[in-house]
Structures are given as C-alpha cells and as structure tokens.
C-alpha cells in the first residue's frame, strides 16, 4: 500500500505541476472538463490504493459476458 500511495502521489504532483499554469489560462469550459476528469481519477486512485473491489469499468463490461458466451457457444459448441 505505501508503494501504491507514493506512486499516485508522485504522479499526481507531476501532473498538477505541469497543468496548473495552463489551467489558470484556460477557458471556463476547459477548466470544467478538467475538474470533471478529476472525479473519476480520485475515485480510481482511492480504489487502487485501498484495493477495494468497488464498481469499475470491468463491472459494466462483464454484463456482456453472458451474451458473448452464448454467441461463442453457437459458433463453436465444443470450445464453450
């Protein structure tokens, strides 16, 4: 966990150091989008550091597993 936390902290500091001067000069819409991206970023960073199995993109992707399995079974009954 400390390794993960330090990695996230280092990368976040580097990102903010690079982006803050540009952020100050950016249009309101660009700032809003930047801020909006920080929400999933913080959520994912929290999941990563604390190793929680909270909903993520894979939860959505896994919804398609059933239909994909059916298609594979139709295509090749032996392999499925």
């Amino acid at each position: 966990m400390p390794g993960k936390f330090i990695t996230v902290l280092l990368l976040a500091s580097a990102m903010l150091a690079h982006d803050l001067p540009k952020f100050k000069k950016a249009r309101a819409r660009d700032r809003l989008v930047y801020g909006a991206f920080l929400v999933p970023l913080l959520y994912l960073a929290f999941i990563f550091v604390t190793a929680r199995s909270w909903p993520n993109l894979d939860s959505i992707f896994n919804v398609l597993r059933g239909p994909a399995q059916q298609f594979i079974h139709w295509l090749n009954p032996v392999n499925s």
Partner: peptide
C-alpha cells in the same frame, strides 16, 4: 468542444 485539448492529456493518461 474543448479549445485546448493538451490540458486534459495528463488526467486522461492518469485515468
């Protein structure tokens, strides 16, 4: 509809 897409490059990469 972003004007400066370079601004979001790093957060996108981080995500």
């Amino acid at each position: 509809g972003l004007k400066n897409e370079r601004l979001i490059a790093l957060p996108v990469a981080f995500i």
